[in-house]
Design a protein around this nucleic acid. Structure first.
Lengths: 225, 225
DNA sequence: ATTACTAGGGAGCGAGTAT
DNA sequence: TATACTCGCTCCCTAGTAA
C-alpha cells in the first residue's frame, strides 16, 4: 500500500484515539468516518496489520485496533514534516552534530576541477575540506533523504589518469545563521542519510570554534526559481 | 484523484515553495522529490491543474507551477486537522456562535419517545430545546462533516398518526468546559455542516447567560471503547 | 532538453455475498 | 448482527516513445 495512503489512514485512526488504546473499530462505522466502503476498511485494516502499523483483534466478532510503535513513529515523522512544510516552505532546516569523517573531503575539495566549478556556480571559493554533520533526529534524516533526491546545482565530475571523480550535487545553505556555504552530495557518497557534508568559504571548525559533538544548524534554501 | 493523494502531493509542492510564488518544476526533478516517475509527475500536475489546485505554465519548454487559492485552503485545512489530531486524539473541539434556529428543536425534544431514550442512553433528561451553534471557521465545518459520518449513540425514530420522527444520532459533549450534554444529528437535518445542535440537562442560554452571537465551546468525546 | 501521450500491469475500490 | 472473500471496474503507476 502506498505510503501516502498509509499515512493518511493512520492519521485518521489516530484521531479516533487508536494511538493511545485499543478502540472498538467496527468496519461499517469506520467506513463512514474514513469515507470509504466497509469492504475497503476491512482491506485497509488488514494491510495495515500485515505491515505492522496496527494491532488488530476480534472481540465478540467486532474489530478492535490500536496503532503500533512503528505506526506511531510514522505518524510523528509525518506530523513533523507537515508542520515544517508550513513553517518553512522552500527551506530545509537541519540540526546535527559535528563529526569527524574519513578525511576524504579535503582531498576532493582541493581538486582544481571541482574548485573552479564551485566558485562559478556557488559564488565562493570553498575551503579545502568538508565539515561532516551527523543527524540524529529521525525527522532530519527523513528530510535529508528527500533532499538528496532533488537535483540542486550540478557540479560535473571528471577523470584524471589515476581515477574518476564523480558528479557532485550542491544546495546553497547557511551555517549557524552566519556563514553562506553549501551542502554537497557526492554521486557515490560513502555516507548514509544521517550525514550532511557541508562546505563554506571559511574553515568552519575554526570560525565557530567547533569540536566533535558540537551542535550545528544548517539551513538549505532551494533554488527552484 | 483521491483527496488523500491530492493533499499529500500539494503538501510536498508547498514544501518546495510553490505556495508563495511560481517555481520552476521540471517533471524529471519533481519525480525524484515526490518519489514517482517523470510520467506520473506529468499526470499528477495535469490533474491538479484541471481540478484547480495549481497554476501551471510552460516557459521555454520547462514547467512552472504555483498553488492556487483553492489549493492553499485545502492545505491549511489539512494542516490544522493534522495538528489537531496530535493534540486531541479522540476529542473533537469546536468553537462557534450561539444562533437562533427555527424553533423545531423544542418541538422534537419534548416528544416523550425521544426523551426516554436520551435519558437511558445519554444518562440525562434533556431540557426541551436545542441550542444552535453556528460554525464559521472552515476547519470546524470540516470536522463537523467528519463527525457526522460516525455512528455515535443511536436514538431510534418512531411514528405517530400525524407524522414520522426520524432516527437521531448523538455524541456526548462538554459545553464550555462545564456542562455535560450532547451534540445531536437528526437523520434529516434541515441544517448544513456549519451548524451544531446541542442538548443538555440544563437550559444552556439561561445557565451561561447566552445571547445570539456569543462564542461557545463544544468538545465532543468519542465513544469507541 | 523538455512534456505528455499510449499501453499494459497492478493496486485500490465497492457490490454482492459467504461465513 | 459482524468480517472478509471474490469479482469486475477504475484509478494509478511506469516504460516506451512522439513531439
Amino acid at each position: 500500500m502506498n505510503i501516502r495512503l498509509i499515512r493518511s489512514y493512520l492519521l485518521d485512526l489516530y484521531k479516533l484515539g487508536a494511538g493511545e488504546k485499543m478502540i472498538k473499530a467496527p468496519t461499517t462505522e469506520l467506513a463512514n468516518f474514513l469515507g470509504v466502503s466497509q469492504q475497503s476498511v476491512s482491506r485497509i485494516l488488514n494491510k495495515l496489520h500485515t505491515q505492522d502499523y496496527i494491532y488488530k483483534e476480534l472481540r465478540n466478532r467486532v474489530l478492535w485496533i490500536r496503532i503500533t510503535e512503528k505506526g506511531l513513529m510514522e505518524i510523528e515523522d509525518y506530523i513533523k514534516y507537515v508542520n515544517d512544510v508550513y513553517v518553512n516552505p522552500g527551506r530545509f532546516v537541519f540540526e546535527g552534530y559535528v563529526s569527524t569523517g574519513l578525511g576524504e573531503g579535503a582531498y576532493y575539495m582541493s581538486r582544481k576541477q571541482y574548485v573552479t566549478q564551485f566558485e562559478s556556480i556557488l559564488g565562493f571559493k570553498p575551503y579545502p575540506g568538508t565539515l561532516n554533520v551527523r543527524l540524529k533526529n529521525p525527522f532530519y534524516i527523513y528530510q535529508n533523504r528527500l533532499l538528496r533526491r532533488l537535483n540542486g546545482y550540478k557540479i560535473k565530475g571528471f577523470r584524471t589518469k589515476e581515477r574518476v571523480f564523480g558528479d557532485v550535487k550542491a544546495f546553497k545553505a547557511i551555517i549557524n545563521d552566519r556563514i553562506d556555504g553549501a551542502v554537497i552530495y557526492a554521486e557515490r557518497s560513502i555516507y548514509g542519510f544521517d550525514m550532511l557534508e557541508v562546505i563554506a568559504p571559511e574553515y568552519l571548525r575554526g570560525f565557530f570554534k567547533l569540536k566533535d559533538g558540537d551542535k550545528i544548524k544548517v539551513v538549505i534554501y532551494l533554488n527552484m526559481e
